[in-house]
């Protein structure tokens, strides 16, 4: 019995807890991508840099607060910086729309043109970020590091294995939950949110009903900016901030959005967790876990790891491929292709 519990604790410690945190980050990112897709009808390759911009703002604000001696005690100061990051990122998103994307809306450009335009925005923002904060790794967590330490868990339960929950993981899950709940409440319960859905569903009919497209677009960018700032900051808080990683994270984010069904918000959330947990379960070394459950004679020799951790990123691609082959509209049937 204890053996099984020990095995479960190992699994929770290395897969479940990190997966929840990582899944939340991906879900927030994918939700942003899906919002832009469903209203503006293009895949926004600048979304990663938008997240990065949010994280950068949060870091700069955190430094400013720290230098003033302002903090949140056990919680990271970055939480206090988050509102600033959200506001700045929304501003960046709105400026980008005004200065760049709006023109293509007016000329009714094809979505592939948007794609390349978003590349330009990505390049520009990426440069701006590196110009401001440099290309190096930044750690900006402060306050208490753990909600629960492995050792105290062992003492508490008397088990051999420990379960550690980092503060950043806890904050990620809670914040993401609040954000997602807010977005869903907004989309389903408010008049403005419903008008966004209506516009995304049937543009012509929305116009006939007197829905103002520019307002819908503006609100979309506001939500997207907020989501990106939160997702970027949480990711940086959890894994340390490096401008380069926000380009690589685009792939799992797009994969999450597509797996769930592009344009479908629920799909984006589910997709985020599907990708996160598949990455972790497939790259997890089951050796230690199995030694608890299996009789000694059957104890595995190798690591029992399906794929080495370096190939995490390949997994989002594999899942993406499978979905594209079997059900191109995604699990929750997003926009048809």
């Amino acid at each position: 019995m204890t053996d099984i519990l020990n095995a479960l604790v190992i699994f929770a410690n290395f897969v479940l807890v990190p997966g929840l945190a990582y899944g939340s980050q991906l879900a927030l990112g994918a939700l942003g991508v899906t919002m832009v897709y469903s209203v503006l009808r293009f895949s926004n390759f600048a979304h990663g840099e938008l997240m990065s911009f949010g994280a950068m703002t949060a870091i700069l604000t955190t430094w400013a607060l720290q230098s003033q001696g302002i903090g949140l005690g056990p919680l990271p100061t970055a939480l206090l910086a988050l509102p600033v990051a959200i506001v700045v990122t929304i501003a960046v998103a709105l400026i980008a729309d005004r200065a760049v994307f709006k023109y293509y809306r007016k000329t009714r450009a094809e979505s592939v043109i948007y794609l390349i335009v978003s590349l330009g925005v990505m390049f520009f923002l990426g440069g701006l970020i590196r110009f401001i904060i440099g290309p190096n790794d930044r750690v900006f967590t402060d306050g208490q590091r753990f909600i629960m330490k492995a050792r105290s868990f062992k003492q508490m339960t008397g088990l051999n294995e420990g379960l550690a929950i980092k503060m950043s993981q806890g904050i990620t899950v809670v914040t993401a939950f609040i954000m997602v709940a807010f977005v869903f409440w907004f989309l389903n319960k408010t008049r403005t949110g419903k008008s966004m859905r209506a516009y995304s569903d049937n543009e012509d009919l929305a116009l006939l009903s007197g829905i103002n497209p520019e307002r819908v677009v503006m609100i979309t960018w506001i939500i997207t900016g907020a989501l990106a700032a939160v997702a970027g900051t949480l990711y940086g808080l959890d894994k340390s901030y490096k401008p380069f990683t926000y380009l690589s994270i685009l792939l799992p984010i797009f994969a999450s959005a597509i797996v769930g069904g592009v344009g479908n918000p629920i799909g984006a959330i589910v997709g985020g967790f599907v990708i996160a947990f598949s990455e972790l379960t497939v790259t997890f070394a089951y050796k230690k876990m199995l030694t608890y459950v299996l009789p000694e004679t059957l104890a595995p020799e190798g690591l029992v790891q399906a794929l080495s951790t370096e190939y995490k990123i390949a997994l989002s691609f594999v899942i993406l491929t499978i979905v594209l082959l079997i059900k191109p509209t995604g699990l929750f049937s997003g926009k048809t292709i």
Binding site: F42, S43, F45, S111, V112, L115, S248, L250, L251, F254, A255, I258, S308, E310, Y311, I313, A314, S316, F317, L320, T321, L324, P328, I337
Partner: peptide, 23 residues
């Protein structure tokens, strides 16, 4: 499929190729 899927798929495969070359 839709045109952006090729963009995303190629972005992905190129990352994977680099990871493979590194590892």
């Amino acid at each position: 499929l839709r045109s952006d899927y090729l963009a995303i798929a190629t972005l992905g495969i190129s990352e994977i190729i680099i990871y493979a070359m590194k590892n």
